[in-house]
Each structure stands twice: as C-alpha cells, then as structure tokens.
Amino acid sequence: MSVIQELSRSKRSVSPRRKGDGRWALFFLAPWFVGLALITAGPMGASLYLSFTDYDLLSAPEWVGFENYTRMFDDPRFVNSIGVTFTYVFVSVPLQLAAALGLALLLDKGMRGLALYRSVYYLPSLLGGSVAIAILWRQIFGADGLVNQVLALFGVQGQGWVSHPDYALGTLMALNVWTFGAPMVIFLAGLRQIPQMYYEAASIDGASKFRQFRSVTLPLLTPIIFFNLVLQLIEAFQSFTRAFVVSGGNGGPSDSTLLYTLYLYLKGFGSLDMGYASAMAWFLLLIIGGMTVVNFLASKYWVFYDD
C-alpha cells in the first residue's frame, strides 16, 4: 500500500519511456529461460526431428524426410479430422466466449447470491476430463436422456443425439460451451481490474449505464477478451480429453467427433506411428500459429491497452 500512498502524493508526470531494460529482463525471465532450455525446447525439438522419421516407439526412428507430411494429405481420416476440428473450433469457441462474457457481466457485482451463482456455473468446469463425463453426457443426450424427455413433453420424438454421426459433434460442442467457467472467471477477474476512477469520471460526465459499458467496460476489457479468444482458440484446436472420453476413445460414431488431436493420439499411441503423429502436431502448430498471428495483427484494431 505504501507505494500507492507515495504515488498519490507525488505529482504525476510522464517520464520518457526507458529503452533497454536488458538486465532486468534477464532477471525476470531467468526461470522461464531455464525452463525453455531445459524442459520445453528439448522435447519440442525432438518431436520436430521425429516428424521426419518413421518411429513406432518400440524401435529406433528412421529418417524418412517429408514423407509423413506428404502422406497426411492422402489420408482421408486426416482430412476429415481437419473438417471436424474447424467446425468444432469455430462454432463452440464463439458460443462459449459469448456465454462466458454474458454471465460474467451479469454476475459481476451488485446482486445477491453472486458467489453462489458463480460457483454453480463454474462447477461443471471442475469435472475436467473425468471418465464420468461420458456417462453424464449420455444421460442428457442419449436416446432416453434428459433432452429427449423434455422434447417428449412437447410431443417431439427425439433420438440418440450423442451416438448419431450427424449430431454427435453438436453434443461435443455443447459440452465445450457447458464448461464456459474458465473464460468466465477470467472475464470476472478482468472486470475487477478496471479502475473505478474511469466509471466515476464517466458518471460525472453524465454517461448512461449503457454508455459506461460501451466506453469504459468494453474497451478496457478488450485485452482480456483478446486473451480469452487467443487462448480458447489454441485450446480448442488441441481439444482432446472430452472427445476422447465421450467417444469412448475413437472419435466415433464413424469419425464424426474425430478431433485433430484425438486422431493424432490414435496414430501415435494406438497405431504406434509416432513419426506421423509428430508431423501432424507440427502441422497443427502451423495452423494454430497462423491463426494466432492473424489474431495479433487484427488485435491492433480493436484491443485497447492502457500503456
């Protein structure tokens, strides 16, 4: 608190931004650099190398050049998994973020029972990749599940959503939206980070609540929206556990939930084709990396930083 008090006493002036905090950067980044060098870089490099080999985990890898990469595009299951993954990512991520942001705004402050609501909405996200999820999901989207029971009340005959190739991916996306707790918490934290002074200044200026939202909350929340967008995209592209658990491990029915990473895993550990899996991983990295670069470039136009 002392710094803050000193601060408030000191007369503010804008000091020239100093360039070159090299030594300080080294100090602050030291753990990360060590981790990068010792733990992250080696295995990443190894997987890059393995992506150019025929490697079955049980015997030594053999160099095959770009074969794994060229093989991918002749593999119908690979092509299918890309389609499944893009659908999954571009439908469920926006929905999940919208739900998270909406509820975060609703649950931000000034209401009774907030802590309770927040916790209740977060509970599903606590389950993680529990094997129980598969069973729970069948209780909702199965042939005799909750959804169909509700539909039956309206005289609509439902069907086994979770096990129908046309709808299974939809239930998986619903599962992803259902666990919007993580981005919601980040949004909540972001809302709390917005300095009160902005609101006061705005209300002195006579801004309506909606205008306060538009000109204070939203712009100041953009770094967090941006963060959630970038990270949820990265995560959604790598979604694995839920698809694995819900589909019983094979991306079924009939490959309709075969997400990219699930296929990669099945190739690497199921078919013992780790070379191919590694190539898939690096190709995925290119996709996600490209997406992230676009995101960062676009962010210049809509993300507001106060610094």
């Binding site: 598969a134 069973i135 069948r138 199965g142 042939a143 069907q159 086994g160 959503w161 979770v162 096990s163 129908h164 589909s247 019983g248 079924g252 029915p253």
Partner: peptide
C-alpha cells in the same frame, strides 16, 4: 434397436 441406440448401448 435403431442405429443411434445401438451405438449408444455399445458405448455403455
């Protein structure tokens, strides 16, 4: 049972 149910029971 129909296909969707069959797949569901199989997974269970």
């Amino acid at each position: 049972p129909d296909a969707a149910r069959t797949v569901e029971y199989q997974a269970a």
